[in-house]
Design a protein around this nucleic acid. Structure first.
Lengths: 194, 194
DNA sequence: AATTTCCGCAAACGAATGTTTGTTAGTCTG
DNA sequence: CAGACTAACAAACATTCGTTTGCGGAAATT
């Protein structure tokens, strides 16, 4: 191994932390729990990370910056708004499947962020929601969408996509692609048959 | 005051606990925090409740039994499946608005239930989901709904309705009725204009 | 009026929390 | 080979946790 030496333990800590935080919550997870999962004493972790809070910050901001940069990419494309919204839905599902633990933590445990980070995170989320909402609004103006309340549409989509974290396990009856297709159908054409 | 004497403190504790648990999570809330909110010392609370865990159980099971009994009522009515599903969606929204703190706790902190209660709660939830899913399935069979994957439809609806807890505050731009109408539209007829 | 019950408090309990300290091997670098 | 760095550990830190105990006074019951 060449560079398996430095920050790999740090990475391992972050991964195990995400899993544990998702499972038992941030407050419900002790540094000794986490250390046990990593295969180390609690004290030894402080050779790799500054504090428990820092772990949470790293997880949350990695997720939020991923979402924000991906949103920017989608905004920049030339496509009908229907397609942009579909891309965003697929983005959420994909991230949830690929990095479910971290996304869960960013969704649920952000409230435990210590104060400078807390406002920063909330601002980032608000910025993301604003960009998402703008796409819906423009889609309505362009006549592609029904004239539904924008906030309702936005949060319905954002939430509808969250349950994947609770439900999806690889090797489920549905593949990731089928899952995406089904959710997109639900959200864009609705449950009812016309 | 006539009967302001007995179990009213207990009720107050449960209400404040629901608010605090929603705000800071079960593990993140200390008995001293809660006692402060109630206006009492932590030790004094043990005159009214058995333990912190008991508080959580009382909150969670009150919510779950409400859902289950209401589902039974709706199942018993004579109405198209579209209407039954709409009623369920409205039920979720109404409960979230009227008793948001408790519902949030039942949604997020149930995992901290101590063991006999934990399985009991999960079973109750599974029972509710099964009943809900059956209505969707029958609606598809009756040709009222699109042939979407039942689990996807179920969890999309259940989740889509949860964000109300994060978003709704009385005196918001939308009234409860408008909120219900918008969410029902989103879920049943979809965002896209045909 | 006497007595029991209710409900609050201060103090303390042991256990668990996040983190610091001092130390000790091993490994890289000059 | 000497010195510096890395990363692990055990022990201890102060604090906070949920909860128990013992006690006092007010209110309800007899």
């Amino acid at each position: 191994m060449i560079t398996t030496r430095k920050t790999n333990k740090r990475q391992l800590i972050l991964e195990e932390a995400a899993k544990l935080f998702k499972q038992k919550g941030f407050s419900g997870t002790s540094m000794r729990d986490l250390a046990g999962e990593v295969g180390i004493e609690a004290a030894s972790m402080y050779n790799h990370i500054k504090s428990k809070d820092e772990i949470l910050e790293l997880i949350c901001f990695r997720v939020s910056s991923t979402y924000i940069s991906q949103l920017a990419e989608i905004e920049a494309t030339e496509a009908p708004f229907v397609e942009k919204i579909k891309s965003l839905i697929r983005l959420h599902i994909r991230l949830m499947i690929e990095d479910g633990a971290a996304v869960s933590v960013a969704n649920h445990d952000w409230k435990y962020l210590p104060e400078p980070a807390l406002t920063e995170f909330k601002d980032a989320r608000k910025q993301y929601e604003k960009g998402f909402a703008a796409l819906i609004e423009q889609g309505i103006a362009a006549g592609e969408f029904q004239p539904v309340n924008v906030s309702v549409a936005l949060f319905t989509i954002l939430s509808a996509v969250r349950w994947v974290e609770l439900w999806y396990r690889p090797g489920r009856e549905l593949s990731a692609e089928e899952l995406e297709a089904n959710i997109v159908t639900m959200l864009l054409t609705g449950l009812e048959k016309k």
